[in-house]
Every structure is written in structure tokens, then in C-alpha cells.
């Protein structure tokens, strides 16, 4: 019975991983991912660190820089750190706990197929579970990957008592503080957008057939990061993104 359940959990993990990879390949790039690429992955590491939205994803961007550099730009390579984080997460967390979390939080599956810091943060949490001696640093990295993790981790620390606060929560907070305070000091209000998944998919569908043509394309500011991404991803240097006398006008 025990063996059977272990085998079924392993099968579930493999299926989850498969779904993550499939989603990473097929899902159109989101506005958030396009912005991450445009603001944090494309510029130099130094410029990215000082970008206004660095606080929300510069750790992820550091990894994405490597994967994009190694395997050329595409949706998959931009999302590769998230997939790798998913693999680490599944490998590091005791299987039952991982299974429970996957079961209870289906959204976790999408965190490992999209270029954001959530998956990375979850992987760091799993690593902290496995290597408890360096748990404070790993939890600090989790918060630095995705600052929203500070809240649940803080609640867990408070519930666990003074020992956990002193030995784990404070060092984790200080680690995250050291990594984030400079980006946070330069943070600006996030760009508000009305671009949803339908528009994201439509941009890809509209641009895919235009590959290989020298065109002047006009796009509203909301979707410019997406257009820039596909231009770089498809290596279409001949595309000119301009509002002056455009041959293709993207509008939603």
C-alpha cells in the first residue's frame, strides 16, 4: 500500500512536471513576463538592479539572463528558471508535503510555468525545509525572489514562537532586506495595464505570420513590451516599431 502510494505520488509529480513544461511552451507570453524581459533581463545586470521594478523580480531575472543567453530567447527559455525551480521543489520537498501543497494549491503548478519569482520562492522554501542549517538564508532568498512571501513566512514564525523568530525569521528578514533594500528604494508604482490573456494570445497570433517581412508596426504602449519581446525572440530586426505611417497597426 505504502509502495503503491509512493509510486502514485511519483507519477503525479511527473505529470505535474509535464504539464508545467507544456504550459511553459504553449502559453502566450504575459504582459508581466514581457515587462520582466524588457526591464530586467534585456538590460545589463547593473542596470536591471537599479530598474524601478527590480524589487519584484531581479533574482529571477539574474537566472533568466543565463538561460536566455545559453539557449536564445523564447518563451520557454525565459520560463526555464521557473521550470528548474519546479524540479528543485519536487526533488527537495518530502514527497507527501509536496503532494499536499500541489493538491491544495493548484495555482502552484502555474507558478512553475511562468516567468515570475513565485516558483523560485517556493523552491527556496523547499530547500529551507531540506537544509535547515541554512534555512534562514534560503528563506531570505525566497522573500527576495517574491516579497509577498514575507507575509506567510512571518505568520508562521510568529505562530512558532520566539525561538523561530530569533533563529529563523530575523536572519531571513535581514537576508531579504540586504538583497532588496536598494531595489526597493528605487521602486516606482507598477504599471497598470488592461492587457489580459486574450490580448496576449492575440498579439502572438498577429505577429507570428509576419515573420520574415520588413514592416513598420504600430502598437499601443500597453502591449509594446510584448511586441518588443516577439521582435527579439523571432529575430526580426527588420521590424520597425513606430507610429509613423505604420503598415501593421495592432490595436485592442
Amino acid at each position: 500500500m505504502e509502495r503503491l502510494s509512493t509510486a502514485s505520488i511519483k507519477a503525479f509529480f511527473l505529470a505535474a512536471l509535464g504539464v508545467s513544461v507544456y504550459l511553459a511552451i504553449t502559453r502566450p507570453l504575459t504582459f508581466g513576463e514581457a515587462t520582466l524581459w524588457n526591464d530586467l533581463v534585456r538590460p545589463s545586470a547593473r542596470a536591471a538592479f537599479f530598474a524601478p521594478d527590480a524589487w519584484s523580480g531581479w533574482l529571477y531575472a539574474l537566472l533568466a539572463k543565463r538561460t536566455v543567453g545559453l539557449f536564445r530567447l523564447s518563451e520557454l527559455t525565459l520560463r526555464l528558471p521557473a521550470i528548474l525551480a519546479g524540479i528543485c521543489y519536487l526533488a527537495l520537498l518530502p514527497r507527501r508535503q509536496a503532494f499536499l501543497i500541489f493538491g491544495a494549491v493548484p495555482v502552484a503548478l502555474s507558478w512553475f510555468s511562468i516567468a515570475t519569482g513565485y516558483g523560485l520562492a517556493l523552491a527556496f522554501c523547499a530547500a529551507a525545509w531540506r537544509w535547515q542549517r541554512v534555512a534562514p538564508i534560503l528563506l531570505g532568498l525566497a522573500i527576495a525572489s517574491s516579497p509577498v512571501f514575507a507575509l506567510p513566512l512571518g505568520i508562521v514564525a510568529v505562530v512558532s514562537g520566539l525561538g523561530a523568530i530569533e533563529k529563523v525569521a530575523i536572519p531571513a528578514l535581514v537576508t531579504a532586506f540586504v538583497l532588496l533594500i536598494v531595489p526597493l528604494s528605487r521602486a516606482a508604482e507598477p504599471v497598470k495595464t488592461s492587457v489580459g490573456s486574450r490580448e496576449e494570445a492575440a498579439v502572438r497570433s498577429a505577429l507570428q505570420p509576419l515573420r520574415g517581412q520588413a514592416l513598420r508596426i504600430s502598437a499601443p504602449p500597453d502591449i509594446l513590451p510584448l511586441v518588443e519581446f516577439y521582435k527579439a525572440s523571432y529575430r526580426q530586426r527588420q521590424w520597425q516599431i513606430t507610429d509613423r505611417d505604420p503598415q501593421v497597426r495592432l490595436a485592442f
Binding site: P136, E166, K167, I170, P171, V174, V178, V182, S185, R186
Partner: peptide, 26 residues
């Protein structure tokens, strides 16, 4: 009582007080 936090934070604070580093955040 938090391991290594005090010297790490003191070192970080000192680095942030270097004149060449201050323009990064202020």
C-alpha cells in the same frame, strides 16, 4: 540571539555609508 545577523547588518550599514554608495539609494 540571531546567528550572524549583527555583524552582517553592521557591515551592510557601513557599506551603505560610503560616499560612493549613498547616491544609489538617497
Amino acid at each position: 540571539n540571531s546567528p550572524a545577523v549583527l555583524p552582517a547588518l553592521a557591515a551592510f550599514h557601513t557599506v551603505l555609508a560610503i560616499p560612493a554608495v549613498m547616491p544609489v539609494y538617497c
